[in-house]
């Protein structure tokens, strides 16, 4: 399958599309944290980095099998999330954003100064393992898991926490436990995506996982539509592919990228597919007449 795709597609496109798949997995993870549960995380790249470095060190220095390293990368990121989450998730809103930003930078600086990560020289010699077929298979798995999570008891509790944490607590939801779980699951997917990233680009450097990367992930989710799975996929696709397709415009491309973002925020402030829930769309048509009547009644 991979061989077939390589024979018909330019290797450059394959690389870009594979990277897009990796970002979709990470963005869907962040969507669970920020979109569904409403916790602002400005440090998603750090968990992505934990997965990338964790998996790469295992395969390069300890000859771990790739699939084992992939899983280990996710688990390490989830563990980091739990350790950081315990103190950080007591905060909400802007304060949580600032703390996640701080922790993100700490993780990056740690990688910059450890021997095992190669420090500022970076970590090289990683084998190429992430094929486009593997990445997109995992994208499908991630979509399925996220969809199942959001439509479960667990998912509804997360939405309740986002909408009104005090009411959610009064309804009997253990909000700190749910927040930590959501954070850990979201970061697990960031870790898996990081592991795929490492075995796709074959070279890791701590500067690639700074605040800019975290911000990029947040843009994917916010521009696509917080909490919407198709929205996040669309947002990630537009923002990953646009700079590539605009490459011919060289210096102007970041200008256009910026303008694109401003326009999107003006015309679709809730994100491209924000507030669009496919299920509810069907639902709405079914009950349209009824809803129309009750709104008219007011009261």
């Amino acid at each position: 399958m991979s061989a077939f795709l390589e024979s018909i597609l330019d290797p450059y496109y394959i690389q870009v599309l594979t990277l897009l798949g990796v970002y979709i997995i990470a963005a869907l993870g962040l969507n669970l944290i920020t979109g569904v549960t409403g916790m602002f995380s400005f440090g998603h790249a750090a968990y992505f980095a934990v997965g990338a470095y964790g998996a790469a060190i295992l395969t390069v220095k300890y000859q771990f099998p790739f699939y084992g390293a992939l899983l280990a990368g996710g688990i390490m990121a989830a563990l980091a999330a739990v350790i950081i989450g315990f103190p950080a998730l007591r905060l909400t809103g802007d304060y949580l954003g600032i703390v996640t930003l701080g922790f993100g930078e700490i993780i990056r600086v740690v990688f910059l100064n450890l021997d095992i990560t190669g420090g500022a020289l970076g970590l090289a010699g990683i084998a190429k393992e992430s094929s486009i077929v593997l990445v997109y298979t995992l994208v499908l798995v991630t979509i399925y898991v996220m969809y199942a999570l959001q439509n479960s008891r667990f998912g509804r509790a997360l939405v309740a926490i986002r909408e009104d944490d005090i009411a959610a607590e009064a309804m009997g939801i253990n909000i700190s436990a749910y927040k930590i779980k959501a954070f850990a699951i979201g970061c697990f997917f960031a870790g898996v995506a990081g592991a795929l990233y490492a075995h796709l680009l074959l070279f890791l450097n701590p500067t690639d996982f700074g605040f800019a990367k975290s911000f990029e992930f947040l843009c994917f989710v916010v521009l696509g539509g917080l909490g919407s799975i198709p929205g996040v996929i669309l947002g990630t696709s537009v923002l990953t592919l646009a700079p590539e397709f605009l490459r011919s415009l060289s210096d102007y491309r970041m200008l256009i990228y910026g303008a694109l973002m401003v326009l999107m925020m003006i015309f679709r402030p809730n994100g491209l597919l924000g507030g669009v829930d496919l299920q509810r769309l069907v639902f709405k048509n079914k009950y349209k007449s009824q809803a129309g009547r009750s709104t008219a009644a007011g009261g």
């Binding site: 008891r153 509804r156 509790a157 939405v159 309740a160 909408e163 009104d164 005090i166 009411a167 959610a168 009064a170 309804m171 009997g172 939801i173």
Partner: peptide, 22 residues
């Protein structure tokens, strides 16, 4: 709770289901 604090972006039915969460 004071000020009602319903979950605004959930339907009436979903709100009631949240009440039976435990």
């Amino acid at each position: 709770p004071e000020g009602r604090r319903v979950f605004p972006d959930m339907t009436v039915l979903e709100n009631l289901e949240m009440g039976a969460y435990t």
